[in-house]
């Protein structure tokens, strides 16, 4: 009896790990290739065992523009998250604690703005950016990312705020706190974990955003997504260096993502799945 249960557990272990390794293999392969020489990297027979080298990382690091693009990614993802939070926190607070008859409709409308495919408005945004000098600027991309993430952030914060017991805020109201005090002295400290994971998700999404990065930025303000895309037309040996650059571009987000996996589901499903 016990041994059959154990045997089943081993069978599940084997199956699940095979699936996991298979799915993660491309990521593993990127990291591995980053430590190969270019010759090893393009070999027809893949090298699993080789003498690891750091030369690709040196090469990528020496091309100073890598850090230029990385800096753009950092500024845009952190900046857009900050801007979106600034707009979203008061809004979610008002909707969670002073709901009106229209609150539900407002939330659904916000969701529906995510339904609008970005490409549908590519032309006007491109022209507006061209005419206002926002094309290829960090500010422009940052603003777009903030708008893209705003509905998700508002929804996430809304569901987190709803979990703060209403009575606690009412007690504060009885104690003489106005709406802003309620927000800053109570709600923000109480929902810090929720705000943190919301920010994390927004940073991840902005970091990986590709459509607007590719269409609205060029040499000056391009983030890492666009920088990596410039490898798509290969000249010469480049797999290993591409892998090294990719590893550097995905590593921070992979770590953040793993750290926020629980809230990720909730955020991306707008609280429908917790």
């Amino acid at each position: 009896m016990i041994s059959s249960k154990l045997r089943q557990k081993w069978a599940v272990t084997l199956l699940a790990w095979s699936v996991a390794l298979l799915l993660a293999f491309p990521v593993f392969w990127i990291v591995l290739t980053g430590f190969k020489t270019e010759t090893e990297a393009i070999s027809r027979v893949p090298h699993f065992f080789f003498h690891p080298t750091l030369e690709n990382y040196q090469a990528v690091g020496e091309r100073a523009n890598y850090f230029h693009f990385a800096w753009n990614s950092i500024v845009v993802s952190l900046g857009s998250t900050f801007l979106a939070l600034l707009l979203a926190i008061p809004c979610s607070y008002a909707m969670a604690f002073f709901p009106t008859k229209r609150t539900k409709d407002t939330l659904l409308w916000m969701l529906s703005t995510k339904m609008m495919p970005s490409v549908g408005v590519l032309v006007p945004i491109y022209l507006i950016f061209r005419d206002t000098g926002l094309l290829d600027t960090k500010t422009g991309l940052l603003a777009i990312d903030a708008m893209l993430n705003l509905p998700i952030i508002i929804w996430m914060l809304y569901t987190f705020f709803k979990e703060v017991p209403r009575e606690v805020l009412e007690a504060a109201r009885m104690d003489g706190a106005g709406p802003l005090r309620e927000l800053y002295d109570l709600l923000l400290p109480l929902s810090m974990p929720g705000i943190a994971s919301t920010s994390l998700l927004a940073i991840i999404l902005a970091w990986n955003e590709a459509f607007w990065s590719l269409t609205l930025t060029a040499a000056k303000a391009a983030p890492l997504t666009a920088f990596i895309a410039s490898f798509s037309s290969p000249e010469g040996l480049f797999y290993a260096k591409l892998s090294a650059a990719s590893t550097m571009a995905i590593a921070p987000i992979l770590l953040l993502g793993w750290a926020s996996q629980k809230q990720l589901v909730r955020g991306l499903t707008f609280g429908a799945v917790k």
């Binding site: 993660a24 990521v27 990986n208 590709a210 590719l214 997504t225 990596i228 571009a249 993502g257």
Partner: peptide, 8 residues
């Protein structure tokens, strides 16, 4: 895989 940027 979900956290890998699409271009990568």
């Amino acid at each position: 895989p979900f956290f890998i940027m699409p271009t990568v």
